[in-house]
Structures are given as structure tokens and as C-alpha cells.
Design a protein around this nucleic acid. Structure first.
Lengths: 242, 242
DNA sequence: CAGCATTCTTAACATAGGTAAGGATCGGGG
DNA sequence: CCCCGATCCTTACCTATGTTAAGAATGCTG
């Protein structure tokens, strides 16, 4: 079952920002060069000056900042339909890395092409701008998460965010979804050590809230988890009318 | 000495993104309604649906998220020339609050007016988009700061960020600049308690790195402070050619 | 100038989360 | 099919930061 390379992003933008037929047409006819990447491959490096953007067609990727003393902070987790380095269209230098989490299908679109499209189709340009703004909104929530919530709530919040984002693109029907992350990586995302992540995960399992393993998450008791996390999905801005 | 309401933002955008004479002209002739606000006033509320953006003409403001159990996280600190709620142009609902820190001169610009300008002047639209992207870049660094750095480095990093941003708009010549924040507010910004902020500030003072009080900061030993903080200004994207 | 409310400071004590180290499992390559 | 490296899990102990409390500076405001 071969899906169009743009199917997922088209679906996302349609739901989130609204596109007319011509916009969809413009997106679908964009020249994209496909590449397959292995898990834990660099897509874009910190300090680099990209001349193209990377559409995540299939798989999972993360944005990561490294510190001088080896610390590592995951800034966001990306799924199919995302363009994690869209910002490079207007920000010349990368200030972080883009790395795959799983094997991925990537589609590269030249900056020139995108700029051209934006000029021609202001509604699409707006949708892309909006996409980067939603990115920023998720960063804000991430700051709150890391700065204010205790470890349990932090982890719970991450799972719920991923659930709603995957739901939007049709990759989570019930309560289960793929998420190929190690406990170490959860730690890097949440500002915790893998040991502590492990402690908390044990607790949450014991309490019957979730089932997690290296590749997937199953949310067993969403109401209690949402309560624990203080989760409010407004910040995801998934509905353009809301 | 009366300064034009747009002088600071024009200066910033010129340095950061480059504007031609017509762009400047367009900005300067924007209809703006001025309002003065007291310190600690709400400018925009979480959950609100703004129909205008707020240009910070004079003074300091913060963006803040409140948690269900009273926690408070400051997401960013804003200075003259910033439009802290520019994102509301494409994101309908506010997911946080905008609050003044000091008495402020605010300039409100209707969304319709801005959208109109963006359509007419693509370069300006690009500069504004870029401005929101720099915002996002600062959020990323803020995540790293709160997630990875120990308290000392966290505080040091905040001071250095403010220094370079104020320098750009000409409000920090030497090593001293205004920053009207209490230790409590530093805590809310950094995910620390005011008591711990106080402890660290004492240390940094004793070691001759900084002098801080309720309204201003004096960076006494920038090299050592930058070393401590692991500060690298790239993420501020202050130079369009860089 | 008095008086009240912040803010700052210090101290004693408590705990969430980090560090270190080793054993148990698991999955992919030879 | 078995071995090896990577995860995962567990335990014990330690430290940065939070909590509570209370007094000393400030700085408004009347």
C-alpha cells in the first residue's frame, strides 16, 4: 500500500489550517527528493546552513541540543507529516541537530522551491508559518513541563502529547501508538536520568496507567493520566476554528 | 526626548533581517494605538482570542503559563521592540499570558492591518516570520537551560541572553543594563525557588561575577560568566548573514 | 514621617532526583 | 543457535534543590 509522499502533511495542514484544492495541488506537485535513513542518523547538523527542508514522510525524528559538557536535551519529537527544520527557511544557521529515531523516509524540498510556493500561494505560506508557530507553542509547553512538573507528571504529559499528535495524522486509533524511544531518550527529553525514568515508569505501570516498551506506548487510563499530567491540549492548536 | 513609536522595532528588524526604505516607511506609517500600562498588568490573557498584536515600545514584559496547582513558569522576557504576541496573528487562542514587568508603553496594531501589510510587503512579512522563529529559537535554548544546566549556569545564561538582546536595541553600552525583576520572578523563569536563586546570587556576587538588584544587572566578569553558563549566542540569530 | 507590604537574607531540615555499579534480558549478527 | 553489546532493571547511597520559618532591609503610600 503505497501512500503519496505528501499525503500526511496535506492531511495535517488541512485539519489544522485549512487548504483549498489549489493549495493541495501545489503541495502535491512540489519537487521532492526522497531519501531513506537508518535509525539514529543525522539529518541536519548544528551549525549547518541548510538549503533545503526535510519533510518527515515516515518514521520518527528528534531535535537535539548538545552541551559543552556532554549533556543532551531533546527539544521535540517529530512524526510523519512534520517538517522539523522548516525554520531553516528563514534562519540561516541551525542551532541544534535533527536526528532520526527510527528508520525514516525523508523528503527534501529546496528552500528556493518553498519560497517560490509561498510567494505564489499566500494561504499556504500562512499555513506553514502557522506550523512553525505551533512548534513554538509546543516548545512553550515543554518549558513548562521541564521547569514546573515533577517527574511523574512530566512523563505522563509527554505521552499524552504524542497521543494527540499521532491521532491527528491517523496513527493512533485506540490508546496504543508507536514510539521507538529508549528510557535513556525519555530522560534526555524530560531533563531526567534514565534511572529516574525507569523508577517512574515502574510506578505508572504498577498503578495500571500505562504500558510502555522500547517501541510503543499503551495508555491504559487516560483520565487519570491526564489528571496527573495537568494536560490541556489547547496548546497543540489542532483546530483552526478553536 | 520623544522617540518614534516604531524606532526600536525598525532598528531591530533592520539589523536582524534587513529592510529597505519602503519597508521602513510601511512600518512607520502603521496605525498604532498607544496605551500606557502599569507594572504587573495583564496585556493579554491565556484563553483570549486577540484581534490585535502588542508592540512593546518601552518597558519590560513577560510571557507566563500558570499550572493547575498554582505553579508559574515564565516563558520569555520581552524588551522594547518586541511584539510578544505576534504569533496570535495566526494562532487564534492564547495559550499563555502576557504581563508587564515594569510600567510600559504599548502600541496595539490590528491583525487586519498586519495581514494587509504582509500581503503588500512580502519582505516585511518574512522579517516578521523570522522574528517569530527567533522567538522559537530562544524557547529551545530555554528548554535546554531549564532541563540541563545546574542553577548557577542557568542564572548566568539568562543574564547573558538579556545583555545581548538589549545591546542590539542600544540599551546596554557597557556591562550594565536594566532588568526590573525580583528574585521570585527569576525563580519562576528558571524553574527554581526564590530561596535558591538568592543562594546562587550571593555566590555569584561573592565571586565577583555580577552585581544584581531589583532593577538592574551589572556583568562584572563576562568571560567567566560565559564559561560558567556555556553561553553561545548563535541561537539569538542576531545577524542575518551569519 | 509612620506603617505596611514586599523583597531579601539566613538557617535548619526534608526530599526528589542524581550517581555509581552490577545483574538480568533481549535482539541481532556471525 | 549462541554469543555479545545494548538496553533495561535494581539497589544503595549522595547531593542539589525545595520547604518552612523568621528576621532584616527596602520601598511605597497615606
Amino acid at each position: 500500500m503505497l501512500k503519496s509522499t505528501t499525503a500526511t502533511i496535506v492531511r495535517k495542514l488541512q485539519l489544522v489550517s485549512g487548504l483549498d484544492a489549489e493549495d493541495v495541488q501545489a503541495l502535491e506537485s512540489l519537487p521532492i527528493s526522497i531519501r531513506h535513513a537508518a535509525a539514529h542518523d543525522y539529518v541536519v547538523h548544528d551549525g549547518e546552513r541548510p538549503t533545503q527542508c526535510c519533510l518527515l514522510i515516515e518514521g520518527y525524528a528528534i531535535r537535539v541540543k548538545y552541551g559543552s559538557t556532554g549533556q543532551r536535551q531533546i527539544l521535540s519529537i517529530h512524526i510523519a507529516g512534520d517538517i522539523p527544520d522548516l525554520h531553516s527557511l528563514h534562519l540561516n544557521v541551525m542551532d541544534h541537530n535533527l536526528i532520526t529515531l527510527s528508520t525514516c523516509t525523508l523528503g527534501f524540498i529546496a528552500h528556493d522551491t518553498l519560497r517560490d510556493m509561498n510567494r505564489r500561494r499566500p494561504r499556504l505560506a500562512e499555513a506553514l508559518w502557522r506550523d512553525t508557530l505551533i512548534d513554538a507553542a509546543m516548545f512553550r509547553e515543554w518549558i513548562f513541563n521541564v521547569g514546573q512538573r515533577p517527574a511523574r507528571a512530566r512523563i505522563a504529559h509527554l505521552f499524552l502529547e504524542m497521543k494527540y499528535r499521532l491521532q491527528l495524522i491517523g496513527r493512533c486509533d485506540g490508546a496504543t501508538f508507536d514510539l521507538p524511544m529508549t528510557q535513556n531518550e525519555y530522560g534526555d527529553a524530560l531533563g531526567l536520568t534514565s534511572i529516574h525514568v525507569n523508577r517512574i515508569l515502574q510506578e505508572l505501570r504498577r498503578e495500571g496507567l500505562i504500558a510502555v516498551n522500547r517501541q510503543s506506548v499503551n495508555i491504559l487510563d487516560e483520565p487519570r493520566l491526564a489528571e496527573l499530567a495537568g494536560f490541556d491540549r489547547t496548546y497543540l492548536h489542532q483546530n483552526r476554528n478553536l
